[in-house]
Design a protein around this nucleic acid. Structure first.
Lengths: 222, 222
DNA sequence: CCAAAAGTGTTACTCGTACACCCATGA
DNA sequence: TCATGGGTGTACGAGTAACACTTTTGG
């Protein structure tokens, strides 16, 4: 049977929380088109790998993180005929949530790489501003009803650190006392490690790790 | 630049409510592989059309409905290397919600077509059981916080008809009186047309059309 | 009149929010 | 002892669930 063949790529929206603000990993393009412009990391899907595998491989190539430590989920697929001026490219966009990482190294075909604050972005190559906006909205929505915010935290964290993640992603301020009750009361969300820390000053705060829950009951509201 | 070329298809999960139960449009395959097995309708993306355009065209070819009358949204993309035994195929799955339609005609490359109850399905070709399950779960979730249930209704409908949609999609029963208060109280969900009908028997019911709201405040809960 | 479905009123309970208040540490 | 953030108690209002009750039609 005959059929049109298209190029298929995977693009990544890698988010982290740094200095109280949501940041995204961008790479500077080292070739045409959009030479010198900032873009989302990504690359072609290889013939022998599936879509999550391609996303995971690209993520490792860009961040150097071991696979499996970072939350990774598919967001949407974009395939307008003119979105790449060279050829027809359909791209599957993945969202990755990572704890605060060292400044990334440049990838194989990228001139440079950096964390950019989502609130103050440069013009992006291709339709990557749309991909990014959709992925950020997905992340914001998922914080409400899943324990995904813990993906931004180190293995052990305090309730205040978790709250600052929510405040950074949602761009709001939350009542620290009600937030504490809600997250510690949601079954399976947080497990105390037994330890405490005073790294935030004041009274020692209980340290938690992520619990087994996959959804939050009741959900946290923006 | 060199890159691997893949086939890209669009598959459709077309849902409707018939006889109080959720149904999906299936086609019988007229060629190998999976000859004679039931599958989701779909086809290759053409070089000159975007993804929503391909989904809309396939939908029209399978149902004969004019474009734009049916809700259509992307669900997810599937690309395991072995999901089609002939060749590498990446498929973008779309969800369509339609009012009760006449029995569909067979498409161009389908031997037959029918509405199948989602609660009692045959074995499907390829990984279409997964695509279907993901799309149905998306539809169920969206009824909670969007006015999407109206996409299953004719242009003018009663609150009871809308309630039977929710009951069919969720597989639950709902309190008719509380449901009435909730949907008529949600701003922008329903607009009275001024007319009434007794087609359900009993006291005449007010007829409504879909309102301008895109999200429901407060949401309806399962 | 009776059955059936539409639509309203009422009550008890749950949950989110706001905020007063106390606790445990470092300086 | 004071400042700082951690954590608890409590009261008020909004929203939900359960269900008694009234309304308006067809037969």
């Amino acid at each position: 049977m005959s059929h049109p063949a298209l190029a298929v790529t995977v693009d990544l929206v890698v988010l982290t929380v740094r200095a109280g603000a949501l940041h995204v990993l961008l790479v500077e393009r080292g070739e045409e088109p959009f030479l010198g412009r900032w873009a989302l990391p990504g690359g072609f899907v290889r013939p022998d790998e599936d879509l999550p595998g391609a996303a995971s491989r690209e993520l490792q190539e860009e961040t150097g993180l071991p696979r499996g430590l970072v939350h990774l989920e598919q967001v949407a697929t974009y395939g307008a005929p003119d979105r790449d001026p060279r050829q027809r490219v359909v791209t599957v966009c993945y969202l990755a949530l990572a704890p605060d990482l060292p400044v990334p190294r440049a990838g194989t075909d990228a001139a440079d790489a950096r964390w950019a604050p989502v609130a103050d972005l440069p013009d992006l190559a291709f339709d990557h501003d749309v991909l990014l906006a959709d992925a950020v909205e997905r992340a914001r929505a998922k914080l409400e009803y899943t324990p995904l915010a813990t993906a931004f935290c180190p293995p052990e964290f305090t309730v205040a650190e978790l709250r600052r993640v929510y405040e950074a992603v949602w761009g709001t301020t939350l009542d620290a006392r009600n937030f504490h009750r809600k997250v510690t009361g949601a079954a399976g969300f947080l497990e105390p490690t037994g330890g405490t820390t005073t790294r935030d000053g004041g009274r020692p705060a209980t340290l938690f790790r992520r619990g087994p829950a996959t959804t939050l009951h009741p959900p946290l509201l923006r």
